[in-house]
Computed example of a mutant assay.
Amino acid sequence: MRSEQAAQNRPWEALKPQGQMLRPQQVIERTGLSRTQIYQMIADQRFPPFIKLSTRASAMPENWLAAFIEQRAELALGRNRA
């Protein structure tokens, strides 16, 4: 039951990384959220994490961000299963 709830709350965890790798600035532009908001939500496990590509580069798989946006759209439309 707990894993089902985690899958509903964090749908990106069930997805393999696919699509373009989005750098933090691209994620900011696509979501309209601030850098601070994004990193706080990551810390709270409410936003997909960035993958460390090298010592100075991080990126997020495009399908993880799409899963987050889809989840938020479902909530906005009142289709939340949680």
Score class of each variant (00 low, 15 high):
residue 1 M to L: 12
residue 2 R to P: 15
residue 2 R to T: 14
residue 3 S to G: 12
residue 4 E to V: 14
residue 5 Q to C: 12
residue 6 A to G: 13
residue 6 A to D: 14
residue 7 A to W: 01
residue 7 A to H: 10
residue 7 A to M: 06
residue 7 A to I: 08
residue 8 Q to H: 07
residue 9 N to V: 14
residue 9 N to S: 15
residue 11 P to S: 08
residue 11 P to Q: 05
residue 12 W to T: 15
residue 12 W to Q: 12
residue 12 W to M: 06
residue 14 A to G: 05
residue 14 A to Y: 04
residue 15 L to G: 09
residue 15 L to K: 06
residue 15 L to M: 06
residue 16 K to F: 09
residue 16 K to N: 13
residue 16 K to V: 14
residue 17 P to Y: 01
residue 17 P to R: 02
residue 19 G to R: 03
residue 19 G to D: 04
residue 20 Q to N: 12
residue 20 Q to K: 11
residue 20 Q to M: 11
residue 22 L to T: 03
residue 23 R to Q: 07
residue 23 R to Y: 03
residue 23 R to H: 09
residue 24 P to K: 01
residue 25 Q to M: 13
residue 25 Q to D: 12
residue 26 Q to H: 04
residue 26 Q to M: 06
residue 26 Q to Y: 04
residue 27 V to A: 01
residue 27 V to R: 02
residue 27 V to K: 02
residue 29 E to T: 14
residue 29 E to F: 06
residue 30 R to I: 11
residue 30 R to K: 13
residue 31 T to M: 04
residue 33 L to S: 05
residue 33 L to Q: 12
residue 34 S to A: 06
residue 34 S to Y: 04
residue 34 S to R: 03
residue 35 R to T: 10
residue 36 T to N: 07
residue 36 T to V: 07
residue 37 Q to Y: 08
residue 37 Q to P: 11
residue 37 Q to V: 14
residue 37 Q to K: 10
residue 38 I to T: 06
residue 38 I to Q: 05
residue 38 I to W: 01
residue 38 I to L: 04
residue 38 I to D: 01
residue 39 Y to M: 10
residue 39 Y to I: 05
residue 40 Q to A: 13
residue 40 Q to Y: 09
residue 40 Q to K: 12
residue 41 M to H: 10
residue 41 M to L: 13
residue 42 I to A: 01
residue 43 A to E: 12
residue 44 D to H: 07
residue 45 Q to A: 14
residue 45 Q to D: 15
residue 47 F to S: 03
residue 48 P to E: 00
residue 49 P to G: 06
residue 49 P to I: 04
residue 49 P to M: 02
residue 52 K to Q: 06
residue 53 L to A: 01
residue 53 L to G: 00
residue 54 S to F: 01
residue 55 T to W: 00
residue 55 T to Y: 00
residue 55 T to F: 00
residue 56 R to V: 08
residue 56 R to G: 04
residue 57 A to W: 02
residue 57 A to V: 15
residue 58 S to M: 03
residue 58 S to V: 15
residue 59 A to S: 06
residue 59 A to E: 00
residue 61 P to A: 06
residue 61 P to S: 07
residue 63 N to T: 10
residue 63 N to K: 05
residue 64 W to N: 07
residue 65 L to K: 02
residue 65 L to T: 07
residue 65 L to P: 05
residue 66 A to P: 15
residue 66 A to Q: 13
residue 67 A to D: 00
residue 67 A to V: 10
residue 68 F to W: 12
residue 68 F to G: 07
residue 69 I to E: 04
residue 71 Q to K: 08
residue 71 Q to W: 04
residue 73 A to V: 15
residue 73 A to N: 09
residue 74 E to L: 13
residue 74 E to V: 10
residue 75 L to N: 11
residue 75 L to S: 10
residue 75 L to C: 08
residue 76 A to C: 09
residue 76 A to F: 05
residue 76 A to I: 12
residue 76 A to S: 08
residue 77 L to N: 10
residue 77 L to S: 07
residue 77 L to F: 04
residue 78 G to F: 01
residue 78 G to Q: 05
residue 79 R to T: 11
residue 79 R to M: 07
residue 80 N to P: 05
residue 82 A to M: 12
